[in-house]
Design a protein around this nucleic acid. Structure first.
Lengths: 206, 206
DNA sequence: GTCTATATAAAGATAGAC
DNA sequence: GTCTATCTTTATATAGAC
């Protein structure tokens, strides 16, 4: 009874393409202008009639939710135990910084910080899928290293927080405020290595 | 020629009170609802006619600017060289955390992060008056300590960034996302002491 | 300067044809 | 499902009386 109506239109290739176009446009427009951006802008950016947009998502809020649901599925590069600890952590740090300073990620986070009050469930989704997952992975990695004796006895959660904090430094805050631009990707390795050096100086057994 | 017109109305005690009421209401409303909050809301919160609001500030943008101009004048508790280095830094850290996790400051920063694109000049003002000034003070303090030999040879700017990062940890991010509440003020001293311990482990000469 | 009442523009959402 | 044209509400901003 449901399949009949949907088979005809909802799942048509054309409809799917429109839907994707709207989602892509929504990300761009909301990132750029915040949640205050108009539905007209989104429709124009997607080259679609406004009504098409409403057919798919029902309301502005519905579209907003749909946008961030996509972030749930993102996977993340893991921490593979390769060379020595410093190199492993530097590689992890470089990856993390690449994500953190990615213009799209910055836009998403700006948006969610602004709308956390209005969409608490979405903010949690974005946090868990992003920083939360990275943090959880690092905690487990460090726990193993601590148990193996490669790091001094310490709370792995605190250690993970400290490393992530050192990696970000004060740059993230300045970038969020628009006071300075994101660093060139080529510089990220160096930034990560410096942070890891400080981290290991504090956490290595002496 | 200008004094005549102003003496009659613009500087009257009543007018000044209204102006202050509007500014206070503006802070509350914009913090709570973001820049999307309506002028009607602000006028209602200030117990003032909307026209009064426009008489004083001309436009929504004008009001928004006026709100943040007030933050320029804020002064900040300095770093007084009292006991030993660890205690000094812990006290500094406690003060910094108290500010960072203050609901009003959090609201201002959320707002400015959201509107940094639309009001780049304001975002800079808020940054310089807040985090920027704290950072600058800490840099000078650490520079003196390094030159005095109390800390190992290091770049004072990097050291200041590292200490501030360790103090904030990952809490600030989670709080901005609304995933967790700000810590109880009574816990701040302990949080600061832990961060300072890690910092000194990395930066003290051995 | 301050108030009540109103103009004007824009945004979210929908009706009806194809 | 998608489009054009339209409704309705809300928001910024202003006119005019006191």
């Amino acid at each position: 009874m449901k399949a009949q109506t949907e088979a005809a239109g909802a799942a048509s290739p054309r409809s799917r393409k429109k839907r994707e176009a709207i989602l892509d446009a929504g990300v761009r427009v909301f990132m750029a202008e915040g949640y205050a951006a108009s539905m007209d802008r989104v429709a124009a950016e997607a080259r679609v009639a406004k009504q098409t947009l409403y057919s798919h998502f029902g309301s502005k809020e519905g579209l907003f939710h749909a946008l961030f649901e996509r972030y749930k599925q993102q996977s993340l590069a893991g921490l593979d135990p390769a060379g020595d600890l410093a190199a492993e952590l530097a590689t992890f740090g470089e990856h993390m910084l690449r994500r953190i300073f990615d213009p799209e990620i910055l836009g998403v986070q700006r948006l969610m910080i602004a709308q956390a009050g209005a969409f608490p469930d979405l903010a949690r989704i974005v946090y868990e899928a992003g920083p939360g997952r990275v943090r959880a992975g690092l905690v487990e990695f460090l726990r193993a290293k601590i148990e193996a004796g490669a790091l001094g006895r310490a709370d792995p959660v605190e250690a993970a927080d400290d490393l992530m904090a050192l990696l970000q430094g004060s740059r993230r805050q300045r970038i969020l405020f628009g006071v300075e631009a994101a660093p060139d990707p080529a510089r990220l390795r160096g930034i990560a290595e410096r942070a890891v050096t400080i981290f290991l100086r504090a956490y290595t057994m002496r």
